[in-house]
Every structure is written in C-alpha cells, then in structure tokens.
Design a binder for these strands. Structure first.
Lengths: 165, 165
DNA sequence: GGGATTTACTTGACATGTTAACAAATATCC
DNA sequence: GGATATTTGTTAACATGTCAAGTAAATCCC
C-alpha cells in the first residue's frame, strides 16, 4: 500500500493500522460542534436579556435546587469555580442572585436566586420550551433522549477509584 | 426568601406538563459535562507539550487535510474565526504552522503544518490512541460509535427552522 | 469600468475557560 | 492545644469564546 504522503515529504510510517480517528469522528470536536449548535438559539433568546449562557445556567440551577453553595452550583451548572466566582459577583451586583456565607461553615458561599432572577426565568420560559422542542425536532424525540442518555453515561463513567470507607 | 416556588402563581399558559427539563437533562449542560470529561486526559497529554487543546486540534486537522484556508480550518476544528486568527498567529510564531496568502485569492490565508508540528503529532500519537480507547471503554465501543453518530446527526440538522417569536 | 455587495479574515472589547498561587476556615492528628 | 493538612473560595495571568466593527480583496451588476 503506497502511502499518500498526506502533507508532503515525511511519509514515515505512522503505524498504519493504528491511526488516530479522522477529525470528523473525534469526540471532542463532535461535542464542541453540537454545543455550538445547541447554544445558538439559546443565545438568541438571551440577547434580549443581557445574560450570557453561563448566567442563564446559574439561574436555572438555582431555581431548580434552591440555595446551594458555590462548589455544588459550579458542578451542576458545568462551570469551573473561578468562573463562577466572577459570574456570581456580577450577577449579585445586578440583583439576580444573593450571596451569603454559611454560618455553619464560613468558608462556604451560599448562593440563591432572587425574585428578579426568577422573573427572568419565567419571562423566557415559553421561549426556552420551544428551543428544547427544536432540539427534539432536529433528530427526533427518541434519538434526542438517547443522546442525552449516552452523554450522561459517558460523563458518569468517571468514578473509577472510588473505594471510600 | 421563600422556598422553591418555581414560577409561582401565574400558571396561565405555562401550566402543567410544560416545564423546563431538569438541568440534569439539559442538552447544553450534558454536552459541556461530556466535553469536560473528554478533554481532561487530552489536556494531561498536552501539558508536556505546552499546547492547548485548540492548538492540538489545529494540528490534527492540518495533518489530516493538508494546507487549507482559515475558514475551512476553523469549521473543521470547531473554532471561531477570531479565535483561529489569534491561535494561528501564535502557532506560526512557534513554528508549528505556516501562513501564506492564496495567490488565487489574496483574502484567503492558507495554513499548513510544519515538520515541527507533525513531529508533535507523531510524538503524541500513541498516547492519543490510548485516550480514544479510554473513551470507548467508558461506555463501550458500540455506544461510543452511537454517541458519535447522534452528535453528528444533531449538528448536521442545522439547515432549517426559523425559531422566532 | 466603477460603485455596491459579498467574502475572508482581522481587531477590539468583554466574558469565560484554565491553571496556579493564595487566603481563610475547618478538619486531622499527635 | 497546636502544628499540619484539607477544604472552599478568591485572585491573577493568560488563552479562548463571542459579538461587533473594521479592512482588504473579490464578486456582482448595470
């Protein structure tokens, strides 16, 4: 099998039968593409509110979970703690959330949504529902659920060495 | 403040069965989580090289596709053009890629991988293969391919729909 | 052929992603 | 009790994400 000399000169053996998958079949790239597509209508919705996607996710989680500390919130919203620190400061200044240190453990910052924040969610509720419907329409409701299941399974499979007492 | 009271009292048209999905079943969040999990071993691999994930993707696509213009590269690597502009400048200065304007169309910037860049890919080839194997092990090879198919289908279904108010 | 439009980047401004270093409060251990 | 380690969050520094505006080259169109 003569190699095609992909990029020019050095057609050294790159271990023929064990080559990296084409970038079309790269999971990271596929995830990034899908995220880009999914975010697009959400950003359009949020443009009118002045919120970013991340700030919207913070409101969504707080509305769902009630007051929680920053670490749990960052985990549930898919944010890193340093990002959340800045986002929370900004949202607090805008009156969308409140921050108070936990009296039981003063390291913890307990965050909670305000009525103003709840109002934003309520105002965009119907629009958000239509966006989710749009997701389902893209590949069908069944495959959509299947996709969510697979993503969840992939992310959950990170507990290898969890032999706690 | 009060407890959960998701949207409160105005249940006029939002009503009963039409509530937003729990954040656990949110596609954007699920995609972000999965991406975070997938990137983790890749970042560990790249830590020794000083490259970022994005720079690695640029090298991967250029090695696969040969010299291409910035727009196509950004599309295939899952980057926005403004990001690629800066990344390409940085990588060009490091000698990982080359940039030259297309004589046929001088608006276009044709980017290509250098031997130095190819060397980085070759050096990390085996490690990268192991990472991909790790992905498959997380949920099984079959579900892994299924996940890629669904992601691809979701991203491809973007030629329609005009969700407007 | 020349103005209007489109394309292909580029740049700027700001928000977030990411890692490392750090401070403060708590937990552990002797 | 007090030194040490761990947890929780913050800050800093830099790279990227994102949108808007800008520039230069090609295309359209009469």
């Amino acid at each position: 099998m003569s190699s095609k000399s992909l990029c020019g000169q050095s057609n050294k053996d790159i271990a023929l039968n064990s080559s990296l998958p084409p970038t079309r079949r790269s999971l990271p790239i596929a995830l990034i593409r899908a995220r880009e597509q999914a975010m697009q209508p959400i950003r359009e919705m949020l443009a009118a509110t002045g919120l970013t996607e991340q700030q919207w996710r913070v409101l969504r989680v707080l509305a769902e979970a009630g007051p929680i500390d920053a670490t749990k919130l960052s985990d549930r919203a898919g944010l890193l703690l340093p990002s959340l620190t800045r986002i929370a400061r900004s949202m607090s200044q805008k009156g969308l959330i409140t921050r108070q240190s936990d009296p039981k453990d003063r390291r913890r910052q307990v965050l909670a949504i305000t009525p103003v924040g709840q109002r934003i969610i309520a105002d965009n509720h119907v629009h958000a529902l239509r966006i989710v419907d749009g997701f389902k329409d893209r590949i069908g409701a069944e495959k959509y659920e299947q996709l969510l299941d697979l993503l969840e399974a992939f992310s959950a499979a990170s507990d290898r060495d969890n032999t706690d007492s």
